[in-house]
Amino acid sequence: MPLTLEITLRDETLEEDAFQIIKVVRPNWNPETVRSKLYTGGISNKLIGYYQDGKIGEDVVMIRMYGQNTELMIDRKAEIDTMILLHGYGLGPELYAIFRNGICYEFIQGRILSMEDVRSPEVYPRVVAEMVKMHCDIPSNGLAGNHAEEAGMWNKIRTFDALVEEILQTNPTLVARLETFGFDVSPGFGTRAIKEMENILKSQNMPITFCHNDLLLGNIIYDPNTSKVSFIDFEYAMPNYPAFDVANHFNEFAGIDNPDFDKCPDRAFKSKWIAEYLKGFKLEGVELSQEKFEYWIELCQPASHLFWSLWAIVQAHNSKIDFDFAGYFGLRYIEYDKQMKEVRKFL
């Protein structure tokens, strides 16, 4: 079990504070030879890696400081429970310690997926295999060990929406920026969109499995030396529709810093990817045809965009990280609106 430490990290003394954790989880390390690396790619939390000089490839300890007010959207206890559960199944890093505003865990060797990797015939089948393992091997209700009756995304997105409703009535500057994208963002807009999406997806009677739900390229590690793929960052892992997990992954082909949704996979690549997935998907009492699963993914792609659109508004209001969350809302909501217009045509 991970250690529990009464330590709080502060922005102004981040590395100094984090080193106090290293002294506990790696007491044999020589303080004179410990080096650190600040990772700058994340848009929710702050992340530092610690290692001994000259040994970055051998043992790296990661320390993540939670982002400002992220506990409003993320159940941190559930995240910790998930990390422990998944590591027991050979999925994800080992959790070393929990401190007041973050966690300390094992570094997964390798590199985050590139735009080229995610399409590579050498790599994407390994991503598929890892996702199948998560969807089929882990109890859908996580540590409870039983079957989840409802997709967790509905409670989560309603949590986002409740926060958005408050923000829309208290932050006129942000509202003015959101309105520049040409959409009605008056109170209730998210609630109405969620209700429509929920009616559509629940009518499909899709299976529910344990899902990652945030498989952007930065949350997938590929080690070219071993050809192993690993998933990291389980903040949004929960029971959900596997079609949502796959659809969300396809949406994330666009990237984060300057998303380009023209880079999302075309129908031919999706079909090839899904065929690989269905070869490994084995769940008692569930029969999935290629045609049906592809249809479900088409329905879930706008749901993914809506999910992260509302998330982005909450982040724009709360986060201190240097990232244009309001702009990210606009990009995701444009895609949601465009894809929903297509979905409504064939319902």
Score class of each variant (00 low, 15 high):
residue 168 L to C: 05
residue 148 A to D: 09
residue 128 V to F: 09
residue 141 N to F: 13
residue 89 Y to T: 01
residue 139 P to T: 03
residue 162 A to T: 12
residue 164 V to E: 05
residue 151 A to T: 03
residue 154 W to F: 13
residue 139 P to K: 01
residue 142 G to M: 07
residue 134 M to E: 00
residue 180 T to E: 14
residue 174 L to S: 00
residue 171 N to S: 11
residue 156 K to R: 13
residue 144 A to D: 12
residue 123 V to W: 09
residue 122 E to G: 05
residue 169 Q to V: 12
residue 117 D to S: 00
residue 99 F to A: 06
residue 125 P to N: 06
residue 163 L to K: 15
residue 95 L to K: 02
residue 126 R to H: 09
residue 129 A to N: 14
residue 136 C to K: 05
residue 122 E to K: 13
residue 173 T to K: 12
residue 113 L to S: 07
residue 153 M to G: 05
residue 118 V to Q: 09
residue 122 E to T: 07
residue 138 I to V: 15
residue 163 L to T: 08
residue 176 A to K: 11
residue 158 R to K: 10
residue 173 T to H: 12
residue 172 P to Y: 03
residue 172 P to H: 06
residue 152 G to I: 11
residue 180 T to P: 03
residue 135 H to C: 07
residue 88 G to D: 02
residue 88 G to H: 06
residue 140 S to W: 12
residue 133 K to N: 14
residue 156 K to E: 14
residue 123 V to N: 04
residue 148 A to M: 01
residue 96 Y to P: 12
residue 169 Q to Y: 10
residue 171 N to K: 12
residue 155 N to A: 12
residue 161 D to A: 15
residue 154 W to S: 08
residue 137 D to H: 08
residue 142 G to C: 07
residue 95 L to Q: 01
residue 105 Y to P: 04
residue 169 Q to E: 12
residue 111 R to M: 15
residue 90 G to K: 05
residue 167 I to E: 01
residue 139 P to D: 06
residue 179 E to T: 11
residue 101 N to D: 13
residue 105 Y to R: 08
residue 140 S to V: 07
residue 153 M to C: 14
residue 147 H to N: 10
residue 134 M to F: 08
residue 100 R to N: 15
residue 153 M to S: 11
residue 176 A to H: 11
residue 174 L to E: 02
residue 108 I to N: 04
residue 127 V to D: 02
residue 180 T to I: 04
residue 146 N to M: 07
residue 154 W to D: 09
residue 151 A to N: 10
residue 142 G to E: 05
residue 127 V to I: 13
residue 162 A to W: 06
residue 124 Y to R: 00
residue 177 R to S: 11
residue 120 S to G: 07
residue 112 I to D: 08
residue 109 Q to E: 11
residue 135 H to M: 05
residue 100 R to K: 11
residue 150 E to I: 02
residue 125 P to I: 04
residue 116 E to C: 03
residue 128 V to G: 11
residue 112 I to N: 10
residue 123 V to T: 05
residue 124 Y to K: 01
residue 104 C to S: 15
residue 166 E to I: 13
residue 142 G to T: 06
residue 122 E to Y: 14
residue 138 I to M: 04
residue 104 C to K: 02
residue 151 A to I: 00
residue 109 Q to S: 12
residue 104 C to N: 01
residue 143 L to P: 09
residue 179 E to I: 00
residue 115 M to F: 15
residue 127 V to Q: 02
residue 122 E to Q: 12
residue 172 P to M: 01
residue 130 E to Q: 13
residue 180 T to G: 04
residue 115 M to A: 14
residue 130 E to G: 03
residue 136 C to H: 00
residue 116 E to V: 15
residue 161 D to P: 02
residue 133 K to A: 13
residue 108 I to A: 06
